[in-house]
Structures are given as structure tokens and as C-alpha cells.
């Protein structure tokens, strides 16, 4: 029993690591610092210092399934276009309007998204300026 569980855990662990190493370039401190600076000036009020959001008003980013998901385009779109779809997010609805932040440059958007994907309890691959650039062109 015990051994089986251990094996399973190892499996899980390996799977996690594998998932990472496919895209993983190590995320540099300067990317995180830049991302944090954008976060503090643009996102903090609503999403709070701990990424916890505000119950029923502003969605949390910490632990949010969409924030750590593989679909980075969705996150880029949210920052470029804003978000007030009022869809159910991890079982809850949020009533505030998130405005677009399209005036941020590609690098700033990439860094802030990398920051929220790798802060608090979150861990996920980085977003690049090239990915933001490509989507911005498509959305125009």
C-alpha cells in the first residue's frame, strides 16, 4: 500500500516536473521584479497584495485555475481587452469591471502575467513579449 502510494506520488511529481521542463526557461529575478512593479501599480487595488482578490467582487489570482493554466492567450486577452464577462470562475461570480490595460507594452504585460503565474501559491510557465505581441496583432 505504502509503496504504491509512494510510487503514485513520485509519478505525480515527475509529471509535474515534466510539464514544466517542456517550456521552462528559468524565470529571472528581473522579470519577476518588473512584473511586480506593474502588478503594484495596475492590479493591486482589485486583486490585493496576496492575490486573494475581494470575495464576490474581484476574482482571486492566487490559486485560480485559469491563471496557472496552459492557455496563456486567455490571460493576455484579459489584460488587453479587460474582463467583465460575469462568468463563473472556480465556482464563484465576481461583480466588478476589470478595464483593459492595453496601454501597457508587450514586455510589461508578459512580465505581469509571469509574475501572477509564479507568485503566492502559483507556479506555471512564463509568458513572453512575443506571445503578447502576436495576440495583440490578432486582436486588432
Amino acid at each position: 500500500m505504502k509503496a504504491a502510494r509512494g510510487l503514485m506520488m513520485m509519478g505525480l511529481l515527475c509529471f509535474g516536473l515534466n510539464g514544466f521542463s517542456q517550456t521552462a526557461k528559468p524565470i529571472t529575478k528581473s522579470v519577476m521584479d518588473n512584473g511586480k512593479a506593474v502588478y503594484l501599480s495596475r492590479c493591486l487595488a482589485c486583486h490585493q497584495v496576496d492575490g486573494g482578490g475581494v470575495p464576490r467582487l474581484n476574482a482571486p489570482l492566487d490559486g485560480a485555475s485559469a491563471v496557472i493554466a496552459a492557455d496563456k492567450a486567455k490571460l493576455i486577452r484579459i489584460v488587453l481587452k479587460g474582463y467583465s464577462d460575469r462568468v463563473e470562475i472556480d465556482g464563484e461570480y465576481y461583480s466588478n469591471n476589470m478595464a483593459p490595460h492595453a496601454d501597457l507594452n508587450n514586455q510589461q504585460i508578459a512580465d505581469v502575467l509571469t509574475y501572477i503565474r509564479n507568485s503566492w501559491s502559483n507556479k506555471a510557465s512564463a509568458v513572453t513579449a512575443a506571445e503578447v505581441k502576436a495576440l495583440r496583432a490578432k486582436l486588432k
Partner: peptide
């Protein structure tokens, strides 16, 4: 209360 979610009762 450093973040709104820290508050237990409101």
C-alpha cells in the same frame, strides 16, 4: 487585515 479575504466575518 492585509487583504480582504483575511477577514473571517464581515
Amino acid at each position: 487585515v492585509t487583504s480582504t479575504r483575511v477577514a473571517q466575518h464581515r
